[in-house]
Design a protein around this nucleic acid. Structure first.
Length: 853
RNA sequence: GCCCAAGUGGCGGAAUGGUAGACGCAGGAGAUUCAAAAUCUCCCGCCGCGAGGCGUGCCGGUUCGAGUCCGGCCUUGGGUACCA
């Protein structure tokens, strides 16, 4: 009897796989291709259980597809640009490049022991000049295609550090380092014209049959197609050039209830009025304080400033409405001006109540007059009839019908026109930071903004930069900016902004198809490998990353870098949950908790105590693993204690993959025990007498075929936890089986195959131990025999009025009438019916009988 | 604020609209052992002696039948355009 020694067998099989090059993806016409990709990691320095879970899921799919005869591409790379590298450089010194490449090496070393079926020959990092140089080439092609332009946009400005802040660096409206109140400031920035593709990106969602419905819905809402009315209010005594205020509304049916007009503090009229009204200017300045996020703007207290200007209602010129500057009106959406109808909009209601504006109802819940409204009455339900009074006596039901009727009415009366608008804004890609892909353009005094020549790419980041003061080191670099104008040759200055890191991750999946190419992609490779057949990653990327990638695929198609068939790059998407872990904390004097590491805590009877002094510790369950909370479980410890197969098995077994999983030490222990049990079982079967007679051989094989069926289905539908439950059950069946050696050997080898995507090392070892041919990784996936899946006799529960009262065993093919007769004759049924005649009997063959009394 | 999810025993969870709690953890009882570890067997939603009743976040609805479908809430999580 040997001992299960994961350290030894895992190293051995990883070498065997490497030696045989089984995971190297080579184009070939003789097999269907399958491209499986997990969202590539940011090289933070340590892998965590979330990575293990994400890559193990992808690995299960990759290995399963390999076993079902596919030519599999399963690559890995690094999303390597971004703020943390610069933050580390500022906090602990060193250089972002060294920090990043050091982290990549560390993480690769931590990842390799997991035994993932990755083609490491295709690995790259987005901070490799070979990668970002090709990204610069893409940028130039997009520029030429008219997909990129410059305009002003608002950023968070820290007035003390004199630097642009990311939203993450703004805490409660203040800069995270300086503590200064953040201001909004306009900068000229580069934009991708993603909004021109709004309709296409929205419509194509329908074709993504293998994407989660929730992700498609979130994207659709984000793109936000709306039909509304755009029209102008005429001002009564507006300043010169402001005799009209353009307004866009999605609720033109409530126009008769308008009681004020709100304009953004950044609206041209507000800016005009600011010039000679100090109070108004002060109000606008106040509105411009705080972060730029939609969340910050929408949750801020609603504030208004009466400009004193009024406008005429388009259908009642005697009715004058006040114009307010309102902090909740976004300049980026619509026209930067709205009309407020407090009776039918919660936010307008709040505003009107605060500033004493009239509340005019246009809809009634019935034909009777309404009492005074004390909250906004929003007639949202289309199944009820509401009446709109106004519009010269026209009455409409609510919903789209009323909106369409209102637009038609306004158009025919010369008040504006119906327009379609999108919420989606263009993608601002300029970042005033060092550790990103330089934007390959040059600023020339005579020629203006000039694209860099392709032969000068890559425009590499300089290494000699200084992080001792805040701001973009490229701006301060003594020589890097100096260059010759690509157009006239005169001395010119480089653009010092770098690209948003979302650009890097918007095409890496295409680059994996030809990672060393001298062009962004190679036609034949992209045509062969694209699309990604299965993409796997966190739900937190449901909108931005996935939408940007979809846009990029289209832009790459327009510029000849991807085939038309790849303009939706991800055929199937799976979004997995996070790995969580309990937080152990004790209170500190100042109220802030002290966080304790799991290894410093003893668990007894569901309570936790400090090992050091026995003090009881508060347990906060299921928190996202976070370094600052000391609740990160290092996968390396698990691997060194139990082996990679145990870590893989556990992250797949306990929770459904789309949900968060809580890491528990006891769960990992249990996984390891189970794998040991399978190992021992293999040994036991190998030692059996091949000539001895067995008992119930057929029953074992039936159970085996059911397991093949269930596990295959589980793997194909991401039901890994359910598949593993079936494997537990089959292992128990096999270990109790008295079947002969041939049947048991068949069963353990099939079990190994079914386990091989999850625990590949153990599976290889069992395969070899039982005399399997070649590597299990390339052995064809077992096939369930349909004839072995059907039972002859089924157990049917009998319900009376939906409550289970009895059960009967009947042949599977028994007729409904027979089943009904047997059910009614059942002693428990007769007793419960107590002489009453059943009104109805429902027999669902193979499922249930329900007697309605 | 807005958009999208999730909520089932002590815990993680299972369940094509058809026996709620598969499988695992923890717990309990027993076997083995000089003893322990390891291993194996059995029990294990709540109330009730029992018959039985109650149970899938809360309230209501559809259905012969609802964890599952519909409406309204509550709580937690994700996103909210410069975290990745």
């Amino acid at each position: 009897m040997t001992r299960y020694n994961p350290a030894e067998i895992e190293a051995r099989w990883q070498s065997a796989w490497e030696a045989s090059d089984v995971f190297k993806a080579v184009r070939s016409a003789d097999k269907p291709k399958y491209y499986v990709l997990e969202m590539f990691p940011y090289p933070s320095g340590r892998i965590h259980m979330g990575h293990v879970r994400n890559y193990t899921m992808g690995d299960v799919i990759a290995r399963y597809k390999l076993a079902t005869g596919h030519n599999v591409l399963h690559p890995m790379g690094w999303d390597a640009f971004g703020m943390p590298a610069e933050n580390a450089a500022m906090a602990i010194g060193g250089h972002p490049k060294d920090w990043t490449y050091g982290n990549i090496k560390d993480m690769r070393d931590q990842m390799k022991p997991l035994g993932l079926s990755i083609d490491w020959s295709r690995e790259f990092a987005t901070c490799d000049p070979e990668y970002y140089g090709q990204q610069q080439a893409l940028f130039l092609d997009f520029l030429q295609e008219g997909l990129v332009y410059r305009k002003n946009a608002i950023v968070n400005w820290d007035p003390i550090d004199m630097t642009v802040l990311a939203n993450e660096q703004v805490e409660a409206g203040r800069g995270w380092r300086s503590g200064a109140l953040v201001e909004r400031r306009e900068l000229t920035q580069w934009f991708f014209k993603i909004s021109e593709h709004s309709d296409a990106l929205l419509d194509a969602l329908d074709s993504l049959d293998n994407w989660p419905a929730k992700v498609k819905l979130m994207q659709a809402n984000w793109i936000g197609k709306s039909r509304g009315l755009q029209f102008a209010f005429s001002t009564v005594e507006g300043p010169e050039g402001h005799d009209r205020i353009e307004v866009y509304t999605t609720r033109p049916d409530t126009l008769m209830g308008a009681s004020f007009v709100g304009i953004s503090p950044d609206h041209s009229l507000a800016k005009e009025l600011e010039k000679d009204n100090p109070d108004l200017a002060a109000f606008c300045a106040e509105c411009r304080k705080g972060g730029t996020t939609e969340e910050a703007i929408e949750t801020a207290e609603k504030l208004g400033f009466n400009t004193g200007i009024t406008v005429r209602h388009p259908f009642d010129t005697a009715h004058e409405l006040p114009v307010y500057i309102a902090n909740f009106v976004l300049m980026d959406y619509g026209t930067g001006a709205i009309f407020g109808c407090p009776a039918h909009d919660e936010r307008d209601f709040e505003f009107a109540t605060k500033y004493g504006l009239p509340i005019i109802s246009t809809y009634l819940p019935s034909e009777e007059s309404p009492e005074a409204l004390d909250e906004a009455y929003v007639p949202a339900k289309t199944d009820k009839v509401f009446y709109n009074r106004g519009f010269a006596g026209e009455q409409w039901q609510t919903g789209h019908e009323a909106i369409d009727a209102a637009i038609a009415f306004c158009e025919s009366n010369g008040v504006g026109q119906g327009v379609t608008k999108f919420r989606l804004r263009d993608w601002g890609l300029s970042r005033q930071r060092y550790w990103g892909c330089p934007i390959p353009v040059v600023h020339c005094e005579t020629c203006g903004v000039v694209p860099e020549k392709k032969e000068n790419l890559p425009i590499e980041l300089p290494y000699d930069v200084d992080f001792s003061t805040p701001g973009n080191p490229l701006d301060r670099h003594p020589t890097w900016r100096d260059c010759a104008c690509p157009s006239c040759g005169a001395p010119a200055k480089r653009e010092t902004d770098t690209m948003d890191t979302f650009v890097d991750s918007s095409w890496y999946f295409a680059r994996f198809t030809a990672p060393r190419a001298e062009t962004p992609t190679i036609t034949e490779d992209a045509a062969y490998w694209m699309n990604v057949d299965q993409y796997i990653g966190g739900i937190e990327h449901a909108i931005l990353h996935l939408l940007y990638s979809r846009f990029f695929a289209r832009a790459m198609e327009m510029t000849g870098h991807l085939p038309k068939s790849a303009n939706e790059p991800f055929d199937a998407l799976f979004t997995q949950g996070m790995v969580t872990h309990a937080i152990y904390q004790t209170p500190k004097q100042d109220g802030r908790p002290i966080y304790h590491y799991p290894e410093d805590v003893d668990l007894r009877d569901g309570k936790a105590f400090l090992k050091e002094d026995g003090q009881e510790v508060e347990i906060i369950p299921s928190a996202k693993m976070s370094k600052s909370k000391n609740n990160v479980v290092d996968p390396l410890n698990i691997i060194s204690n139990y082996g990679a197969d145990t870590a893989r098995w556990f992250v797949l077994s306990d929770s459904p993959p789309e949900r968060d999983v809580e890491w528990t030490a006891s769960g990992a222990e249990a996984s390891h025990k189970h794998l040991t049990r399978v190992w021992t079982l293999c040994d036991k079967i190998a030692a059996m007498d091949p000539g001895a007679a067995g008992k119930d051989d057929e029953a074992l094989l039936r159970a085996m075929h059911k397991t093949i069926h269930d596990v295959t289905l589980g793997v194909e539908t991401f039901g890994f936890n359910a598949a593993i439950a079936k494997l537990y059950a089959f292992t128990a069946t096999l270990s109790k089986s008295k079947a002969n050696h041939a049947a048991q050997r068949k069963a353990i080898m099939t079990l190994a195959q079914l386990m091989s995507p999850m625990t590949p090392h153990l599976a290889e070892d069992i395969w070899k131990h039982q005399g399997g041919e070649g590597l299990i990784v390339t052995a064809p996936w077992p096939k369930a025999d349909d004839a072995m899946l059907v039972d002859d006799v089924v157990t049917l529960p009998i319900q009376i009025n939906g409550k289970r009262r009895a059960e009967i065993s009947v042949p599977a093919d028994m007729s409904k009438e027979e089943v009904e007769k047997i059910a009614l004759a059942h002693e428990a049924v007769i007793r419960t019916l107590d002489g009453a005649t059943p009104k109805k009997i429902i027999v669902v063959p193979g499922r249930i009988v329900n007697v309605v009394a």
